[in-house]
Design a protein around this nucleic acid. Structure first.
Ligand code: MN
Ligand code: MN
Ligand code: ZN
Ligand code: ZN
Lengths: 132, 132
DNA sequence: TTTTAGTTTATAATGATTCTAAAAAGGTGT
DNA sequence: ACACCTTTTTAGAATCATTATAAACTAAAA
């Protein structure tokens, strides 16, 4: 299997549920943004076996910790996740409540000049809110 | 009173509660970041009269709509608000769960080159996550 | 196969936020 | 001051996303 090895190498047991979730999230050349609820709907469509919500949360968080997913900072009722884990920025369409990727070349380099003692930068993310 | 006129001009009735909230939020030359819970605690300390949680939510949202407050996009359990409504960016200290203002000169100009048909840019916000 | 630790699951619990509907208060006109 | 109307406040309930619980299950190790 395609993801069996990946999971094993990450110290995650390749369970049926995790493999199924990998299929939904990673078996495409396009990356995308999703909420837990989106993921739940996708899985319902693609398979007959249910995966519990708890497992979806557990797995998404496990994948996030391993760096296979990242969460996008946004203020919305739900958490938004991204299968594109490279450094990149986002438009957020306020009406549609949809995220749109920005290429780094669409934003240009960002240089943070201020330093905080004893802290290091983990990420630099730009969110561009869009209205009509 | 200091805020009476401001509220009236905004079409908001200057109630005791709103005036009290204005005191806590705006009667200082420093701006700051807060959650609804932070605000609730501050009010408990500064006065004997309680303001209900519902009123805090209502008022903060009313002030946000009028442009006296803004919400910072972040993924945390609570919503973070900012009394600094000028365009600026933030550090987010993941361990302390605290926001720190960045001056625009600490980030430099950001030019969004991509355009989305029929949409206009409402805000451009940079979030720099900090870890130890 | 037995054992062990990791995983899934239904369900309950939590916590932030929003809703409800009744009481209170502000504003206006008399 | 009073009556009238509208906005606001409030306690409490409801909602909704997320997390915790703890028992059943399963993958991997011994
Ligand atoms: Mn998470
Ligand atoms: Mn809001
Ligand atoms: Zn993205
Ligand atoms: Zn700020």
């Amino acid at each position: 299997m395609k993801y069996l090895e990946k999971l094993r190498n990450s110290g995650l047991r390749p369970t049926k549920q995790r493999l199924q979730i990998c299929e939904v999230l990673f078996n495409t050349n396009k990356t995308f943004h999703f909420t837990i609820n989106d993921l739940s709907e996708k899985i319902k469509k693609q398979t007959s076996k249910k995966i519990s919500l708890a497992t979806l949360y557990n797995t998404v968080h496990a994948f996030e910790k391993k760096g296979y997913l990242k969460q996008i900072p946004i203020n919305s009722g739900q958490a938004y996740f991204d299968t594109n884990v490279t450094d990149h920025h986002h438009f957020y369409d306020l009406k549609e409540e949809k995220l749109i990727d920005l290429k780094n070349s669409d934003v240009g380099p960002i240089n943070i000049l201020k330093k905080i003692n004893g802290k290091k930068i983990k990420s630099v993310e730009v969110l561009v809110k869009l209205e009509d």
